[in-house]
Each structure stands twice: as C-alpha cells, then as structure tokens.
Simulated assay, not measured.
Amino acid sequence: MTSRAPRIAAWLALLVPAFMLGGALISQYVFGLYPCEMCYWQRWPHWVALVLGGVAVLSVRRVQGLAVGMASLAAVAIAISGLIGGFHAGVEYGWWDGVTSCASTISAGTTTDDVLNSIMAAPLVRCDTAPWSMFGISLAGYNFLLSLAGAAAIYLLLRRKKPGIIAE
C-alpha cells in the first residue's frame, strides 16, 4: 500500500495559498480593506505557491517525484509569505519599525488633472496600522499563523515514509 501523503500534501500546497489569496482579495474588493505595501509583499509568495501547488496536483499521479518537489517548493513559498506576515504584524503591533512607503490605489487618467485628482482621492494605507483584527490578531498575523501551519503540514506530510509514520 502506498502513502496518500504526497497527494494530500500536493492538494494542501494548492489550497492553502488559494484560500489565503482568496481571503485577501475578498477583504480588498468586497470589504474595502485596501492593502498596504507589505500586504502586497505577502501575496507574491502565495501566487508562486499557487502555481507550484497546481503543478504538484497535476503531476502527483504521473510523476510523484515532481509532485513532491513542487509541493516542497510551494511549502517554502507559503512559509516565506507567513514570515513576511509575521514581520508585518510586528510592525502593526509596534514591536519594530517597518517600511517607510505606503500603498495607494490610483487609476490612470487621460490628462494630468485626471491623474492628480485620482491620486488625491485615493486612500492612503499605512503599514503600521491594522485595518482589521479579530481576537487582537490582524490579517497579517493570521497570514503568519495560517501560512506557517500550512507549510509545516505540507512538510510533515512529505516526510512520511509509510502510512501513519513520520520519518525521523
């Protein structure tokens, strides 16, 4: 009997970044929580992990070694996003200084006045204030917790040698 762990790990490598990105995009476009610069930094590794996880899921039945490699790389990308989220949460809680730039959403206009009006009307989002929190944990804090838990789960699943046993 072969282990189902690589298949589960491949699916986790796809679903963890999909849910994290989905939550970020829903919070932005449905609830109006505009992302700051560090929020965007957290998304990039998840996009990479999403692609790697997709390759892992598609190849898990055909080329298991490729699937394991892609899921491993996806776990690394997910962990990187979580670490960026941890840094961002620390900035929000005032534990250390963050970046000095802020993010803003502007739309390009046809004239200089249109561009200037768009810049002036765009929301300015600070990296050192959490726009939303639940139980005292910000979105960046949840990214830290959930991403590192997801990356650890993928890693542990990939280390299984036999069903039910984790390699030492």
Rank of each mutant, 00 (worst) to 15 (best):
G86F: 14
D128T: 02
L14F: 15
R7N: 01
A149V: 02
V51M: 07
A152I: 02
F31K: 11
L58D: 00
L14T: 08
Y40A: 12
T112Y: 07
V16Y: 08
S104M: 10
S104L: 14
I119T: 06
W132C: 12
C127F: 06
T129V: 09
A18C: 01
G141Y: 05
A75H: 10
W44K: 15
L116F: 15
A75W: 12
G136Y: 02
S59V: 07
A122S: 06
L145K: 14
Y29G: 14
T100L: 08
G86Y: 11
M134Y: 10
M1V: 09
G164T: 04
Y155I: 09
L116N: 12
E168N: 08
K162V: 04
L21V: 04
A18T: 06
P45D: 03
M134L: 05
S147W: 06
A56T: 01
L73R: 15
W96I: 14
Y142W: 07
A49E: 05
M120I: 00
M134A: 09
F87A: 03
T100I: 12
M120V: 04
I8N: 06
T111V: 15
L139T: 09
V16G: 03
S59F: 06
F144C: 07
V51I: 08
A89T: 04
A67C: 04
A152E: 06
R4V: 05
S101I: 05
S59N: 00
A71S: 10
L25N: 15
A121Q: 02
I80Q: 12
L148R: 09
W95V: 15
A67W: 01
Q64W: 07
I154G: 00
Q64P: 15
A77D: 12
S3I: 01
A18S: 08
I154A: 00
A152Y: 15
S147P: 07
S72A: 05
T105P: 03
A130L: 06
I166Y: 00
I106L: 01
W95K: 01
